[in-house]
């Protein structure tokens, strides 16, 4: 089944009423290599790292140190 609200067309849906193309090949456990997933998750982690760097500036340089004042002193920010 390729589309949740498509009309039923049998076990192997080929085309739904919205024009979506259905299954064209079967991929088993060993043939499937989720390389695209790896790339997407790597991009997500990269965004997380960039946002954490951004938060560093917001937290430490924007509003001044809060509970980690001693650490800020050590690294020369306070």
């Amino acid at each position: 089944m390729s589309s949740a609200t498509e009309r039923e067309t049998g076990d192997r849906a080929v085309e739904s009423d919205s024009g979506d193309i259905g299954t064209v090949r079967e991929l088993g456990h060993d043939e499937f290599d989720p390389i695209g997933t790896l790339i997407l998750i790597a991009i997500y982690f990269a965004i997380l790292v960039m946002l954490w760097l951004f938060m560093y500036f917001v937290e430490f340089l924007g509003n001044g140190p809060t509970v980690v004042g001693s650490l800020a002193t050590v690294v020369g920010l306070a």
Partner: peptide
């Protein structure tokens, strides 16, 4: 990929984006 998607990220276009549930 079972729907014919190819490439590192090109498979994203093979997903059923016109299906509101998906």
């Amino acid at each position: 990929r079972q729907r014919g998607g190819e490439g590192y990220l090109g498979w994203l276009t093979a997903l059923p984006w016109r299906d509101p549930v998906f």
